[in-house]
Design a protein around this nucleic acid. Structure first.
Lengths: 364, 364
DNA sequence: TTGTATGCGTTATCAA
DNA sequence: TTGATAACGCATACAA
């Protein structure tokens, strides 16, 4: 057997630098056909033990690594999933993406990441780039997308999932009920006798999650007969600094608000910092609560009351959904993940007299 | 002209669902050859205006998107760059990756992300997966990698860059001089008359950046004749909670340290929180300073002194380096980015008497 | 300027 | 179980 294989055959080019080894190289080294090598590597059970071992040895010796492009061309799939996640640098998206990536990697899929700096970057060309790369599936952030996006996806028969999207959206989505989350916060504040509520939220024009949080809050406040104070309602980019500035701004206004809800914990951390600087006791003169995109609420000063959102789980579920679609196994159920209120000492009972900031003590 | 193109020709299969349109489909719709279509799309200047427009129209009508696998096979490149970034969910890596992604995307490259949950996951199979996907270049985190990794990279003639790596490494790396950063911190503390220094750092076994920070600190302390207090030297995962716990632990020990340096700002935030809970004035009884992986140091309580590390810039430089390699244009210079000390009120002069924690007031 | 034909490295089909 | 050979869809060298 061995004699048929010209193992001592030198490669034509003595300069090894030419190309990486191909299937044909392995085949000729092992003295078999390319088909056999292909099967020996990807379907070992179809091949006789001795040949298989010869092939494996040859492949090893040449440091053979399959050419994915050729494989993709022949198999019509790339084992690759695309994700489009805007503004992913400064938020909790990375946590979600990591969970997604891990879930997919467990089944041999690799993540192609497109992370436009701004949401405003038009999605379509990005999606085209991903489709051109032959992604087998796509994960999108949110449920608001140009019709073109869904058209392209459909035209390419590419399964997709929307993460962090509104509850009702289609079915191929996974997200939280942020209205319910808002309800939890407001119920808690209401029970503490707060009647005038402020909100430092994300930018609703740009960010559908921020919009849903504001809407949920507005509804919950209305339902309970409370008041959303306009003078304590600010939209800002999610960030420490923005939260600091927003709260500072509120302090310069006259507001009846005795509790301020923050759109996420970055904003809340900044807001707490501003209150600390201004020597305003929290709670006492004012209570703070927040939606929780990250995990440092317990370590703020004072520890922050939040609605905890299962970010990691969302990434996992999205991945599982896509895998199910790709392997058309389990029937993929649309997912609406549970949120949970975590009360910490940044919220307390409503004070007897409303907040009077030092800078504007005089009535106008 | 138009008449030569059978624009009214119906596709054979009335069921559009079959396959996405190929070059051949566009060609027959436009009444030209596949070669012409290919050129019209990727080298418009080589094609007559009228034909070009006919082709473009046809491509548009069919929603044509090139098959990247076929293109990659023919062109021998994928316009794709791989990145391997462990523990990417909870750190400043996302900021860096986003910068990297944006830089690459500007030149048409897409990022393939491999984000193993732990550093311990063996890199080689991950790199193999990326190479199999045909990445044109690779970005690695850190400079410590199994020899196998560099072997594979070389065998595939794949350019690579190491991010956040030690200064001396090869040349294809971009990073900070973390020893210099440590020097800045220690110099500052020394000037404030602190002589006994503690350190809450990352895990050196697992994390080469943490190791470099510890080493840099040790050297700087030795050079200035200060003391690194063993009882105030703790390694922990980067995280708020871990910082909290580490500082709490230090408080239960007897320590001469009057200043504690933290390995990153997550740890520092946790540490500050622990001191706040214990009612220990910062600065006053103790000073805190930190390496700054993120950007919330100004919003902590009290605002944290840090060495600011240009994370975003690192991602950009790494991207630029790879692009230069890929387009073999500018000679890519190895980069060592500047760090900067930012003093805030968490560090103050050395107190007259050392820290005595309430829980252990009695001398042993 | 445009058409023709070949190669890229796999997988899959069909014989042997 | 194995070998020969035809796709896969695009780019490109060469011819016209």
């Amino acid at each position: 057997m061995r004699s048929t294989a010209p193992q001592t055959l030198q490669r034509d080019a003595p300069a090894q630098a030419a190309r990486s080894a191909s299937l044909a190289d392995v085949a000729s080294l092992a003295g078999v056909s390319t088909g056999t090598v292909s099967r020996a590597l990807s379907r070992p059970e179809m091949i006789g033990k001795v040949t298989r071992e010869r092939v494996l040895a040859a492949a090893n010796r040449l440091g053979y690594v399959a050419n994915g492009a050729a494989r993709a061309l022949a198999m019509r799939r790339t084992m690759t999933v695309g994700a489009i996640v805007p503004r992913f640098g400064s938020s909790s998206f990375p946590t979600m993406i990591q969970a997604l990536e891990r879930t997919l990697a467990a089944e041999g899929y690799t993540l192609l990441l497109a992370a436009p700096a701004h949401h405003s970057v038009h999605e379509t060309p990005i999606l085209r780039a991903l489709l051109e790369r032959g992604v087998d599936a796509v994960a999108l952030l949110g449920s608001r997308h140009p019709q073109e996006v869904f058209g392209l996806l459909a035209a390419h028969h590419t399964p997709y999932v929307m993460m962090w999207s509104a509850p009702g959206s289609a079915g191929q989505s996974v997200g939280f009920d942020e209205a319910a989350a808002a309800g939890l916060i407001i119920e808690h504040l209401g029970n503490l006798q707060h009647r005038h509520i402020g909100f430092i939220g994300g930018q609703t024009a740009d960010n559908e999650r921020a919009l849903r949080r504001l809407q949920g809050l507005t509804q919950a406040i209305a339902k309970r007969g409370l008041v959303l104070c306009e003078e304590a309602l600010i939209e800002a980019e999610y960030g420490f600094q923005e939260g600091f500035e927003a709260m500072s701004e509120i302090l310069t206004r006259r507001t009846k608000a005795t509790a301020v809800v923050c759109g996420n914990d970055y904003l809340a951390a900044g807001a707490l910092s501003a209150l600390d600087r201004a020597n305003i006791p929290v709670p006492g003169q004012i209570s703070i609560a927040s939606f929780n995109d990250n995990d440092f609420a317990p370590f703020l000063h004072p520890p922050l009351s939040t609605v905890r959102l299962p970010i990691r789980q969302m990434g996992e579920r999205a991945g599982a959904y896509l895998l199910a679609k790709l392997q058309n196994s389990e029937p993929p159920a649309p997912a609406l993940l549970d949120v949970e209120l975590v009360v910490r000492c940044s919220t307390g009972p409503c004070p007897d007299k409303p907040l009077q900031t030092p800078s504007r003590r005089a009535k106008r």
